[in-house]
């Protein structure tokens, strides 16, 4: 007989993969219940955004990048994953308040499920992007095979941020607005609309401190230019992600048993 403190709470995420799976399903089903076009909306929004931005930047501002719409989309989709994942993840624990208050289960599964739900959207839209690249450009570079690894890394980055913000949001409801503000600024401080090389040399280091810069540059590198970015751009965000993830898990686990008191 194994004695557990607080029973089910301390069981590893792996052992609760069925619950995780059902929670992700719930996440997706609930969002698209009673919605005629279902998950198509997940694709429609970034496409519309791309269209608008492409018109502004190509027709009005005459940005000198060939194939700008697809170039833009290559950066826009990872950014959308980040912003939607964090938005859904941050409020995930509070949104599931009724369950959290009534059932004992690992609360950490909630932000994980929210980010996984966003990952599903990301997978669909990036699949369409790959099709677009194959169709409009002379084939994909071999480096595109690295895509799953990069996506996995970004997933953990988004998850790490979400673990921190969702835990904070339980206690402080201001968190959501702070996160929104940071994301808004972050969108322009990440080379989504423009390539990093257009940024003046003496400002570039500032952008590289932003882990999303590295992710977007890497996606562009492997899908667009067929190059793997230089080491600093690869190593820094990975170390940052690992540190952030460890902190996120630690802090979330620490308050996991008192969350029900605040939601």
């Amino acid at each position: 007989m194994n004695v557990q403190d607080n029973a089910t709470n301390r069981i590893s995420v792996f052992h609760q993969r069925d619950l995780l799976w059902v929670l992700v399903q719930k996440e997706l089903k609930v969002r698209y219940k009673r919605v005629s076009f279902g998950i198509l909306w997940a694709v429609f929004n970034p496409l519309l955004q791309m269209l608008v931005l492409a018109v502004v930047f190509v027709s009005i501002l005459h940005i000198p990048i060939p194939g700008y719409p697809l170039f833009l989309l290559t950066g826009l989709l990872p950014w959308t994953f980040l912003s939607l994942g964090i938005a859904a993840g941050t409020t995930s624990v509070v949104d599931n308040g009724p369950v959290v208050r009534k059932v004992a289960f690992s609360r950490i599964l909630l932000p994980i499920a929210a980010v996984l739900g966003s990952l599903v959207h990301f997978l669909i839209s990036i699949g369409l992007l790959v099709l677009g690249l194959l169709f409009f450009r002379p084939g994909l570079p071999l480096t595109a095979l690295l895509l799953p690894i990069v996506m996995a890394c970004q997933f953990f980055f988004v998850l790490a941020v979400t673990l921190l913000t969702s835990g904070l949001y339980v206690r402080f409801r201001d968190t959501r607005f702070i996160v929104d503000a940071i994301l808004m600024v972050g969108f322009y401080a990440t080379p989504v609309l423009y390539p990093l090389r257009l940024v003046p040399e003496n400002w570039r280091w500032l952008l590289i401190l932003n882990p999303m810069t590295s992710f977007v540059e890497t996606y562009r590198g492997i899908l667009w230019d067929g190059v793997i970015p230089q080491q600093t751009i690869l190593i820094l965000p990975l170390l940052f992600t690992c540190a952030l993830l460890a902190t996120g898990i630690f802090l979330f686990r620490k308050q996991e048993f008192t969350i029900a008191d605040y939601v």
């Binding site: 403190d5 607080n6 029973a7 089910t8 709470n9 959290v100 208050r101 009534k102 059932v103 004992a104 048993f257 008192t258 969350i259 029900a260 008191d261």
Partner: peptide
């Protein structure tokens, strides 16, 4: 039932 942890004591 483990929904919330006790402030003091053990379960």
């Amino acid at each position: 039932s483990g929904i919330t942890a006790p402030t003091k004591g053990k379960v």
